[in-house]
Write a protein that binds this DNA or RNA. Structure first.
Lengths: 129, 129
DNA sequence: CGGTATCCGCCATGATACTG
DNA sequence: CAGTATCATGGCGGATACCG
């Protein structure tokens, strides 16, 4: 960080909204939250459910979500240790705030894709060998 | 991309919601949409309003948002060319779907920060020389 | 099982220079 | 004013190996 000269405008990085949007934009975070909304899950259970996430990333994002108070980690001292992750009330409210976005996505994906096709159709012809 | 074996679960990358969440998580995209919600703006006007975005990134994200049909670009053939960006009806609905998230962020930032402090307080002492 | 540690490649981003 | 082109870099994330 440097130039914090004196630019306290709402569009600076210190805007609270930005932090949350980054969270939500995180490739895995919301996915995990939505999974845990249904039921608590164990580490490798999440790993298998998501399919494609690396152990490192899962561990990392889980820690980060726990740090933010969005989920809770509970270690059970069984023979091979068992760890259960569950969503917190706070996490639940965030998940709910994401719902409108989910709905928007489902309702408007077609239109977005159509817009993309239209846009691309305007450009491609220009470079048609 | 590889292992697309046969995992059409909703938690795969092809989920429409993921694309939208990525959009929203984009460092600048939503910021721009929210700015344009108030009024149309020109390129350098946006650049100055955001303060910290590079010319390259602004150009890139604007193009991307235009491609998605979320904003409209209008070039006016003045002496030095003028380009005006304005939000589309579609973009407006997305901006509105983001509002609950904004609200959540503002209402719960304190609690998130508190959770972070609590979490950090548990770990730091362990490595306190 | 549930992680951490390490190494490393690649892509996203920034800085800079140039153009219509 | 509104970009594009090129180059450099750093950090995100995957792969692998190892530990409690």
């Amino acid at each position: 960080m440097k130039a914090a000269h004196l630019k306290p405008d709402a569009y600076a990085a210190n805007c609270p909204t930005r932090q949350i949007l980054d969270r939500v934009g995180d490739k895995w975070a919301v996915l995990i939250l939505l999974l845990l909304r249904s039921e608590p899950m164990r580490f490798n259970q999440l790993r298998r459910a998501i399919e494609g996430i690396s152990q490192k990333m899962l561990s990392q994002v889980l820690k980060s979500l726990e740090r933010d108070g969005l989920l809770r980690r509970r270690a059970i001292a069984t023979v091979p240790v068992t760890v259960e992750y569950s969503i917190t009330p706070l996490g639940l409210t965030l998940a709910e705030a994401v719902d409108p976005l989910r709905d928007w996505a489902e309702q408007n994906l077609k239109e977005v894709l159509a817009a993309q096709r239209r846009y691309d159709a305007q450009r491609k012809p220009l470079e048609a060998a």
